[in-house]
Design a protein around this nucleic acid. Sequence first.
DNA 1: CGCCTGATTCGACACATGTCGATGTGCTGG
DNA 2: CCAGCACATCGACATGTGTCGAATCAGGCG
Lengths: 125, 125
Amino acid sequence: MVGLPVVELPTAELPTAEPESAPCCPPLVSAELSEADAVRMAAMFKALGDPVRLRLFSKVASHEGGEACVCDIQDVGVSQPTVSHHLKKLREAGLLSSERRGTWVYYRVAPSVLAAMAALLDLNR
Amino acid sequence: MVGLPVVELPTAELPTAEPESAPCCPPLVSAELSEADAVRMAAMFKALGDPVRLRLFSKVASHEGGEACVCDIQDVGVSQPTVSHHLKKLREAGLLSSERRGTWVYYRVAPSVLAAMAALLDLNR
DNA sequence: CGCCTGATTCGACACATGTCGATGTGCTGG
DNA sequence: CCAGCACATCGACATGTGTCGAATCAGGCG
């Protein structure tokens, strides 16, 4: 659980795919961030910086089996298109991944995300 | 340590003298967030969701002695008023506190912030 | 006092973001 | 093949956000 290598964030799985294979999360407090690192990490924080998105992320993360279909989590007080919009943002930020199975689309937390956040805070030092 | 009334984040006020001693963040992945918690936590993430602010935060956090004056950290590629603006945002989000000593204003990371982020990720479970 | 330096505030502006209803797409079942 | 459900995309709109220069405030120093 400890000593994980810094993990890479997809940053986008849409048409706009970039190489962008660099590690995402140097410790936040032990050394000053480079501009490039700051941009990448800020994108992650920004994606979680909306109450609706944070709730959606939490619903997926805490859902049984580690995944949830949209219908399971879409009750967050905004319209269905808006939910879809926010899920897309989370996907583009590399925090969630999606997969269609039959009628439903299932979302799960991207595997390396939590480890990345831990590394970010330098908690496994 | 868990299950207590999560604390209100400042959300405003420049005087910046609030106690702010309790943890702010229920675990993010073990259970679904309430709307109120989501709003509070999202405000925190949002404050870190800008590259300039993230760099400023990192500069303060990693600075020797745990504090830095504005002149030490203002080289982030934007004008000095913009730096001041972002520092204000970080202050309002409860992430930094400031103190004037003579000519200079010193910023430091609010004491409970890092612990709060750790709790948020449920890493001390 | 007057001035210089450090820092915040103000006013303005371009741009990004969150939201909605309407519409489109993909799959299933009759 | 068509009706219907689950999601996604589109277009539009109000609001929020990051940025700047100019003005202002706060201290130190001649």
